[in-house]
Structure formats: C-alpha cells, structure tokens
C-alpha cells in the first residue's frame, strides 16, 4: 500500500513542538535537498581550487568536503563546490550556504567568515530544532576551506588564533 501523493499534510503545532521543533522540513529545505546547488558533480574536476576543507566524520553521521575558488582582486569567493554525506538537513544546509556565498558575483571572504549557522537556518525557512547541529557542519567546512586558502596564499595574518 503506497501513499496517495495528492494528499499534502499540514503540520499541527503544540506549545511543546514549537519549543522543540518537529521533524518536518520547509519547502526551501526540500527544494535544496532534492535539487542541490553547486555540488561537485565530477569528483576529478577539482584541480584548480584555492582552498579545501573537510569536516565531520561518518561515526557522527555526517561528513563534508568543500572546495572554494577566490577572485584575488576583489577577495570574493566566486565558486564553492561540496560533497556531503548526511541527512537532508546537512545536504540542504550545505547547498544553501554555497548559494549564499557565491550569489551576486560572490561574497567577500571577510563577510563569509561572519556567516553563522543561524543565518543558513533562516534562509532555509527554519530547520527542526533537533537538526540545528547539521547546519554547523557547512559553516565549519567553509571556515576550514577559507583558512586553507589563507595558508596557500601566505596570508597567515588573516588566520585567527584559536579558530580552526
């Protein structure tokens, strides 16, 4: 017996679910999950990137690799490619983050370092509370990739102490 897909269910909230969040995803999350933007289609095509970061591990249930390309003149991220093993929240968060930093001809590196998980969650039209931690991974992967770029381009002064 399969579901009749003509039926769309609306989420019914209680005080408790408003506080804890529920399991249901927003349309934006679903859109990014089913149509992920900027993921690395060809795994061999990442030769001329400027920064790379990988975070997470499979034991925790998610793992992410990220590659960025930087326009040195404007100090903007012009390309961001990624691969994610994880749940729909992790995939949608990474996809949204990659869009946020590359839209409108790219985001300044200093601005993209200021992106917080909550900024991604807001753009996604919220995530279930229990899934907030999934959006942290993208933010960390991006930071790691940017710091990798600083190291490669000998801009060590831009690497902040205590931040990986």
């Amino acid at each position: 017996m399969l579901i009749n897909m003509g039926q769309k269910l609306k989420v019914v909230e209680t005080e408790k679910t408003k506080e804890d969040g529920n399991w249901f995803y927003s349309d934006v999350v679903k859109d990014h999950f089913f149509n992920p933007r900027n993921f690395l289609k060809d795994k061999n095509a990442v030769k001329d990137y400027d920064g790379y970061g990988d975070v997470g591990n499979v034991l925790c249930g998610d793992r992410m690799d990220m590659w960025i390309k930087v326009d040195k003149k404007t100090d903007k991220i012009i390309e961001c490619k990624w691969l994610t093993w994880g749940c729909a929240s992790a995939i949608a968060s990474t996809s949204m983050l990659s869009e946020m930093i590359t839209e409108n001809s790219g985001m300044k590196i200093d601005d993209s370092l200021k992106i917080k998980p909550i900024d991604i969650i807001k753009r996604l039209g919220n995530l279930p509370k229990i899934k907030y931690h999934c959006s942290v991974l993208g933010d960390q992967a991006l930071r790691t990739a940017i710091y990798d770029y600083f190291k490669r381009s000998k801009q060590h002064n831009r690497i902040k102490e205590g931040v990986q």
């Binding site: 579901i3 897909m5 999950f33 089913f34 249930g61 994880g86 749940c87």
Partner: peptide
C-alpha cells in the same frame, strides 16, 4: 555510502513509507 534519512525523504516523495536505523531520525 548513503544516509538513511535522506533516502527516506526520497522514498516518501515517491509515496513509499519505510523506516531507518540512522541516528538522524
């Protein structure tokens, strides 16, 4: 190589209900 919750969401979209042992649900 695939995470169960992601797969459930795809299955649900096709009208198929299943379950997963993944931590994510």
């Amino acid at each position: 190589g695939v995470e169960g919750e992601s797969l459930l969401l795809h299955l649900n979209e096709e009208g198929i209900c299943a379950a997963t042992g993944s931590a994510c649900t």
